[in-house]
Write a protein that binds this DNA or RNA. Sequence first.
DNA 1: CGAGCCTCTCGACGCCGCGTCGAGTCGACC
DNA 2: GGTCGACTCGACGCGGCGTCGAGAGGCTCG
Lengths: 214, 214
Amino acid sequence: MATPDAGTDRGRRARRPSGDDRERALLATAERLLEERPLAEISVDDLARGAGISRSTFYFYFASKEAVVLALLDRVVAEARTARTAALAGASGARDAWRAALVTVRDTFRDHRAMTAAATELLAASPEVQTLWSAVMEDFVAETAAAIEAERARGAAPPGPPARDLAVALNWMNERVIQASVAGRAPALAEDDLVDVLLTVWLRTIYGSDDVPA
Amino acid sequence: MATPDAGTDRGRRARRPSGDDRERALLATAERLLEERPLAEISVDDLARGAGISRSTFYFYFASKEAVVLALLDRVVAEARTARTAALAGASGARDAWRAALVTVRDTFRDHRAMTAAATELLAASPEVQTLWSAVMEDFVAETAAAIEAERARGAAPPGPPARDLAVALNWMNERVIQASVAGRAPALAEDDLVDVLLTVWLRTIYGSDDVPA
DNA sequence: CGAGCCTCTCGACGCCGCGTCGAGTCGACC
DNA sequence: GGTCGACTCGACGCGGCGTCGAGAGGCTCG
């Protein structure tokens, strides 16, 4: 998925170790610089210098600076998926599971705020970023919808709009509120309150109350 | 607020009518081109040609293409504020008021999807857009929080997290869900269902039920 | 061991978009 | 009719982007 890396399509011959080093250095440099300023203010030359190579050599590894961000985003997305799976597996009880999901989303955005901000910056212009981002959201929504339907089936959650519709609204809410808050963009919620407030909205929306019925 | 227009600071002498024409033509061109492609793919020359002037003349009217978007955004924001005020004034009853607010937000994003998409694209890089956008959201949040507190005071809404925190979450949810939906970015809600689904989330979050208690 | 291939590196080039500058036109007003 | 300010433009320089062709060096196979 998303092969921005020109060196990836190796033929018979393996790529040299130094090649992997350079590529990692470029990714690390991008991550570091994005902490300081938006992607628009970072040039290919900045990335290349940061990795100790010339600007032309950069193009051996990536097709553009957007491709670097996309590769970075790939990693973050993969990490977010596994973290979510692990968190849900470790949860005991419905309420705990809802909470665990919120915590992992918050952690992902907090640990990679530079990346997620850059991804948002590219969303309008890059179809690849759109595809990748939509795929993740789609998975989260489907999973949420299934969970809501299960709660409705066992009589714990009241009927109402299609479960999927509620799931769409709740998951987009997470994304936006958390991103705004970790980026410090007003109006924001304090990081400590983030999960509790969102959990309240989730529980009230799904169950109509602050607790999961027995 | 937000004076991107170099011609605005007029001295004794009034600006010529043709000047206003050119400025309007630039704004109209920007709006038209943004329907077709993202801001990153629109050059100053495109805007100037569309308005029938040379590229250098463009700079007499605006400092950059971002300034054009900011001016456009200014108009949209002003329109959104007055539309909201009017809608709330015309509403009869609490439920009607909540619904009216949702409808006006949806209409704003639907009628100006090009603008709002461009604003999002600029959010990460432009402090001016951040300021303007935050100010609007801040107003909506404050108004929402006051309404929630009023409902709590009259015993219609249950206690819970600070009213402001809920207001932050609900208003960001609106922004994100509506923008994703009118932009056709998955996962989205159908435009017809948008308001009903969001209203359900609002009512359940605020009142714990699908209706406003008497 | 050497021929050939593949990874990797770079300097130089041309292109395009941006923002500025100074010269110049035109109309309004004194 | 002279002055002033609104307005217009062509030309310039700058910086970032992406490509191209040449070359260095390591791997592998005959």
